[in-house]
Amino acid sequence: MPIFGEALRNALQKRATLLYPFEKRAVAEDYRGKVEIDYNLCIGCGLCAKDCPSSAIELVLTSDNKKKPKYYISRCTFCAQCAESCPRKAIKMTPFYELATYNRKAEVVDPCGISQ
């Protein structure tokens, strides 16, 4: 019964799981988390919205009549295609992954509410 030896060894070992959310594991160096858009660099070309596979980005007209991307976090699949398509490198992936909320409206990054 080779499993018994293994089971005994494991009984004396440290627990393999973490007590999330009290203990957190560090994410990998280039982890793809929440998308961050730098609206000062953005030229409103719309390539990110065109390439997004899950329609998480759409272009909206801001108060000063410019087209800027609006980002829906709840639709995002974190593929980083927008960051790759952006010609100005205005979009970056951040390591934030704890994005669950009870309020879906709060999960939108709207350029209209951000002062330029």
Binding site: I3, A16, V27, Y31, A80
Partner: peptide, 28 residues
Amino acid sequence: TLFMYVWRDREAVMDLIEEVTGNRVTYA
């Protein structure tokens, strides 16, 4: 018992995939 042990050790390769591709499951 074997199921638990194998899945625990599988975490090593899942973490590695996260390191190499940027995510555990959908690699892109």
